[in-house]
Design a protein around this nucleic acid. Structure first.
Length: 826
RNA sequence: GGGCGAGUGGCGGAAUUGGCAGACGCAAGGGACUUAAAAUCCCUCGGGUGAAAACUCAUGAGGGUUCAAGUCCCUCCUCGCCCACCA
């Protein structure tokens, strides 16, 4: 009867929570609101224990906050559009909507079996028309504002997936999904103008006080602000001017040639009159078609070609040769680079290869003035700051002041001007894919690009489409979809056949949770304003850059448009570490996936939860061990078996007074520790070990003094608190124990236990005593006594006396930290 | 190349502002209970010397600051993650 039947217990309480709507939130009530958000998953396949960590952490936080009396909102949904479902569809012939919905069903069941609770009435799935209608609406709002635009661009093309990839989806020049080498193609694509928010996205990082520094650093680097100077170089014998950007204007006198990117728009016109133009353009075409991979893989293999042209460096009037090379990127700066081979390693490599001049204009402060450096051949570029030489009247200045002086000079002479550049680029949102939200645009021969009016949303994704990739969007093959009427003039027109990047879907879902069933609006402004920002966002670091940046961007845009009144969506962010198995991230392909289902069957959900939380600090990666689960199981049973201990304890209030006092003290200390650990950095591992210590304490008291050690009243009081403390971690067992202890109230309706400051310490304290910094004894003494009394107590201790190498008169110094430590220096 | 982080027993990991290194757990060994096993409970468990008490060494390596360093400073080594021909 007292056996721990976890299977029954867990089913029982999961049903009870559902029946009474434990996780239902009323968003109209905004007092004490707490919005606890977990990154919604992609419904791909069965969840493994690595995924589980995310949801379990979130569930612990939600349940804990409930016990703290907060009005908790924990919604869940599905990032349901995307390539994997479509790829699976191509492979297995099952329609993506079918497999997606089946996966959602399965994952929902798994989440339930973990005891993880959500307000399922607010469930959203990004592939449903009532959701993507509003994704399309957001597109229209950006379009109206000029923040969505179409341009022809060189894009990353995956020949295997037959689609365009965002720069972000290209890893080491290869497709992040299939690892095929990515090539470059020119296509007309839709972009969101994230660059116009670059400065704000960067500046507002300072508002994110409760985000991990790591994530903030990653976002800062990604946005990549740099300050420098744009310098104009007129092309000799031409009206053209080439502008290049540099952060090292102090090296301008060492500029011995200029390099253009192969994609630079002036390349054709500059070389067309050259007798060599055929050969030059061959090179240009070769570079343009080359994938990023071969262009970036080996940085020693820089290749280039001389254009036959010269440009004028106006600061000294010198003509320098103009080259085209594969190491210059069109996407950054101006696509033209002033090459200073003496002070930039890439330029140095290139100049060495093609015999271009190398002129030193910066010397290190150490060698400045000696004649060692100037004139002599150097073997590598000196890239540090230093002292300017061979730089006219700027010679002798240090790099920073030289740069300022040169910039001033250039601005007053009209040679160049100070400029800020960002690495962040506009967000390419077009995908030549089926399984995504259609872009709500119509092309009319008369009216041109026409946005679909809001009243005609959603632009439905057709069901009956051959979704095999052909290089163009599968939607092109659906005449019913493509052929439409122009919303402006009514003439026959064609729909945009690209769909949106799924990052668009996921950059606003957290707003929809507040008003998931609203038909006429994406969300209710008043409610959203009250419930935002999200109090706690929890998810994996892999989304540290893109998802979080895009979400911040969309939030800012919606704020500027007046749809919401806040411009940062997430107050506090927690990124949990991965769970590793056999030294690698869990993945089907590696075959190291640990399924929670089998473990839950064997040990119960509470044990799996407990182990997942106990495995290590949740922000760090952790190695999964099935053996460790066994240990968690033992602990849950040990807690369970306290029922027997309680029954055997001494009734009628006859316990050992000293033992009870100690136990109560330990209990209050434990409450404090657990509370601090959860409130602080989510260190559930140490919170759990504190409860383990308390439970061990109970058992060791009984093992020493027998059942009479604690009275039933005392033990019950402690036991009830243990149950409450464990509630967020092992909710089913806690509820069951709570009920068996006679409570009629759910654990999660009860108040989180509080501790009494006066119960944390005893009257005496055991103080370590060091001699010359080495521990020699521990001495028990009353708390809070004077230094003189401490000295007397310590010197009356036999162990201290025997360890003292000299008579006490020769003690040089006493270091006394009240109630904490004594160090005797001799 | 740039940014961030980490290195502590056989293993996962604990250690407020510098203040008893190794909490808690796993594994291992021993014991109790049992006809036996499982389960449960109890004990031991960083290295060295020692019968023991105790002493001594020990937080990647080497220096330094301090009464006192896993923690602070300098030099170096190793590993992980993110970004990267970004001018």
């Amino acid at each position: 009867m007292r056996r721990y039947e976890f299977s029954e217990i867990e089913k029982k309480w999961q049903k009870k929570w559902l029946d009474r709507g434990l996780f239902k939130a009323d968003t109209k009530v905004t007092d004490n609101k707490y919005y606890c958000l977990m990154m919604f998953p992609y419904p791909s396949a069965a969840l493994h224990v690595g995924h589980g960590r995310n949801y379990i952490i979130g569930d612990v936080v939600a349940r804990y906050k409930m016990m703290r009396g907060l009005n908790v909102l924990t919604p869940m949904g599905w990032d349901a559009f995307g390539l994997p479902a479509e790829n699976a569809a191509i492979k297995n012939g099952v329609h993506p909507s079918k497999s997606t919905l089946a996966n959602i069903k399965m994952m929902k069941k798994q989440l339930g079996s973990w005891g993880v609770g959500y307000d399922w009435d607010r469930e959203v799935a990004s592939c449903m028309p009532d959701y993507y209608k509003w994704t399309q609406w957001i597109f229209l709002k950006l379009y109206e504002k000029g923040l969505a635009y179409k341009k022809k661009a060189f894009v990353n093309w995956c020949p295997s997936c037959n689609t365009v990839l965002a720069n972000e989806q290209v890893v080491d020049g290869a497709c992040e999904r299939c690892s095929s080498v990515v090539s470059q193609e020119e296509l007309a694509q839709w972009f969101f103008r994230t660059t116009s928010y670059a400065e704000r996205l960067l500046d507002d990082i300072s508002k994110l006080k409760e985000w991990p520094d790591k994530v903030k650093a990653m976002q800062t680097n990604w946005i990549g602000r740099s300050e420098g100077v744009n310098i104009d170089f007129p092309v000799a014998g031409s009206d053209e001017v080439l502008t290049c950007y540099t952060t090292r204007v102090d090296t301008i006198y060492g500029c011995t040639y200029m390099v253009l990117a192969a994609e630079h728009p002036l390349v054709e016109s500059l070389v067309k009159d050259s007798p060599d133009s055929g050969r030059i353009m061959d090179f240009v075409r070769k570079v343009r078609s080359r994938s990023n991979l071969s262009r970036t893989r080996d940085d020693s293999s820089k290749e280039g070609v001389f254009t036959g042209r010269y440009v004028i460096n106006k600061i000294n009037g010198r003509e320098i040769p103009l080259w085209i090379a594969d190491y210059v990127l069109m996407e950054y700066g101006t696509g033209a680079v002033m090459a200073v081979p003496a002070h930039d390693q890439r330029d140095f490599d290139f100049a060495s290869k093609y015999g271009l001049p190398i002129e030193v204009v910066i010397e290190s402060p150490a060698s400045h003035g000696s004649d060692a450096s100037s004139g002599n051949a150097i073997t590598e570029a000196y890239e540090l700051e230093g002292i300017l030489v061979n730089s006219d009247r700027f010679s002798g200045m240090k790099s920073p002041e030289g740069a300022e002086a040169i910039a001033d000079h250039m601005e007053s002479e009209g040679i160049g001007s100070r400029a800020v550049h960002f690495r962040l680029r506009d967000w390419l949102i077009s995908r030549q894919r089926y399984w995504g939200a259609p872009i709500p645009i119509v092309y009319c021969d008369a009216c041109g690009i026409v946005p679909v009016p809001e009243s005609q949303l959603p632009v439905l994704l057709p069901d009956d489409v051959e979704f095999r990739p052909t290089g163009e969007s599968p939607l092109k093959a659906s005449p019913d979809f493509v052929n439409t009427k122009c919303p402006a003039c009514g003439a026959p027109a064609r729909r945009e056949i690209d769909t949106m990047d799924t990052f668009v879907d996921s950059s606003w879902y957290f707003l929809r949770y507040i008003s998931p069933h609203l038909d006429e609006k994406p969300f209710d402004k008043e409610d959203v304003d009250k419930w935002f920002p999200v109090d706690q966002y929890i998810g994996g670091v892999e989304h540290a850059i893109l998802h979080l940046l895009y979400s911040r961007f969309i939030t800012k845009v919606l704020c500027d448009l007046g749809y919401i009144s806040f411009d940062e969506p997430f107050e506090r962010l927690f990124t949990q570490g991965m769970i590793i198995k056999d030294g690698a991230k869990m993945s089907k392909s590696k075959g190291n996936v640990v399924s929670p289902d089998r473990l839950i069957e064997k040990y119960g959900a509470d044990t799996v939860r407990l182990y997942t939380l106990f495995i290590g600090p949740p922000e760090k990666d952790a190695e999964w061990s099935d053996r460790g689960v066994e240990g968690a199981y033992r602990f849950v049973k040990r807690v369970w078996n306290l029922l027997d201990v309680l029954e055997g304890s001494s009734p009628d209030g006859r316990g050992d007074a000293a033992s009870e006092k100690k136990l109560l003290m330990k209990t209050h200390q434990t409450i404090k520790k657990v509370t601090d650990d959860i409130d602080g950095a989510f260190h559930f591992n140490t919170a759990i070990s504190a409860v383990m210590e308390l439970v061990n304490h109970i058992y060791s008291g009984i093992s020493e003094k027998g059942n009479e050690c604690y009275s039933r009243e005392c033990l019950k009081e402690v036991f009830s608190r243990v149950v409450l403390l464990l509630g967020p971690f092992i909710p089913h067992a806690a509820e069951e124990l709570n009920e068996r202890l006679g409570s009629h109230e759910s654990v999660f309706d009860q108040e989180w236990p509080s501790y009494d400051e006066n119960m944390l310490t005893s009257d005496t304290v055991v103080v370590p005593v060091q001699i010359n910094g080495k521990l020699r004894a521990t001495v028990e003494m009353p708390r809070g006594i004077s230094e003189q009394e401490v000295k007397e107590t310590v010197l009356s201790d036999k162990k201290v006396l025997s360890a003292l190498p000299v008579p006490e008169k020769q003690i040089k110094k006493w270091v006394i930290l009240a109630d904490k430590l004594v160090n005797i220096v001799v």
